[in-house]
Each structure stands twice: as C-alpha cells, then as structure tokens.
Amino acid sequence: MTNTSLRRRITFAVARKDLRIEWNSRVLVNQVAPFAAIVMVLFAFALDNDGILQRVAPGLVWLATLFSMLVVIQRSFSVESADGALDALRVAGVDPTAIFLGKSIALMVQLFALEALLVGTAFVLYNITMSPAGLVEAFVTMLTATAGLACVGTLYGGLAAGVRGRETLLPLLLLPVVAPVLIGATRAMEAAFGSGGAQVSEGWPWIGLLTVFAVLFIALGSVAFGPLVDE
C-alpha cells in the first residue's frame, strides 16, 4: 500500500472515530450547543439595544464560536487521554499527520454544525435578514473560517493535551493566533448580513484571507503536530 493511501485511510478512520464518539455521547448536542445559544442570549442582555445587536451580530456569532470551540477542542482531546488512547495511538506508530488531519476534519464538521446553529440563533434573536448572494457568501465564509479554526485548534489542542493538567494553556496559545479568523470572518459575515450598510461584494477579500489562513494551518499542522504531541 502506498504511503498516501495509508495516510488517507487512517485520516478517515480517525475522523469517523471522533464523529462516532460524538454520535454515541451527544456531548456537542446536549452540552456545547446549549452553552453557545445561551452566550448569544447573554450578548443580547449586555447590549440591550436592537440596533446595536443587528450591527454587531456577525462579531457575536464568531465570538460565541471561538468560546464554544475551546470547549469542543478540550473534549476532542479528553476522549483521547481518558483511557490512554493517545498514548496507544503513538505507541502503535500511527502517522501523526493522519491523526492531525482526521481530528481536524471531525472538529470541522462539529464546528460547522455549531456555527449554523449560531447563525440561526442570530436570525431569530437579532432580526437579521440576508439576500441570496449574502447567503452564499455566509456559507463560504463559514467553510473557510471553520477549516482554519479546526486545524489551528487541533494543533494547539494537541500540545496542551500532551501535558497533563495544563489544559488551561489552550486559550492563551490559541486566541492570539486565531485573530485573523475573527477579523476576517466577522467582516465577511458583515458583508453577507449587510450590517451597517455593507455590500456583499466587500466580503470576498476577507474570504481570501480566511482561505490563506486555512491552507497555511493545514500545512503547518501536518508538519508540527507530531513533534508537539510526542514525549
């Protein structure tokens, strides 16, 4: 078997395994999604004004995504360390790049579902409307932003999980790095929502930035994940 097809097979095995764990345990559905929704409600309390909420809704969606993401990443690695499975994967010589890609794909699927929920919540709670062109743009924004977030999250999540009892390090390492995603995705989403009179066409340069970010971290993570999680 060639190396590439072996890597692909393990990547999908890892992704399927992570998604099956979520399917069996429903932690995202039962715990993280309600948490994300309540954050959106709390934003509404804090910014007690319909006009402001409509204006800043895109930023709130992505802030809520980032906070929920921290929880999802910690969950993604706590299932690995609960019974020493990550150790077992390492000792079995399973290709770390494939582990990285597989976990990133699973995280991407889960984050995407979460963002869809958050955007839906914003529609209901903050009175957002969108044109068909805006809808397409919002979809592409979510796709590119999520790819970048999932990769960078898996990379730093693995580092924090490799050291017992230091999971608190994750936000410090992760949040400064994802600044480009928060900036880019918020501006692109503003264009899609038409917040503050923004045009749909204004969003596409930001989607370019999100794409660069995603490609960069797919590459960096593939190389750096192995040495970061190893003993």
């Binding site: 764990i21 609960a82 019974d83 020493g84 499975a85 079995a92 010589g93």
Partner: peptide, 16 residues
C-alpha cells in the same frame, strides 16, 4: 512503534 504492541496500565480504549 509500528512493529511492537504495548498494553499499559490503561487500556487505550475510547469509552464512548
């Protein structure tokens, strides 16, 4: 690693 098998104190299972 790929050529040896280790069963440690923990079983390396996914509990879910």
């Amino acid at each position: 690693r790929a050529r040896v098998g280790l069963l440690g104190h923990s079983n390396g299972l996914y509990l879910d």
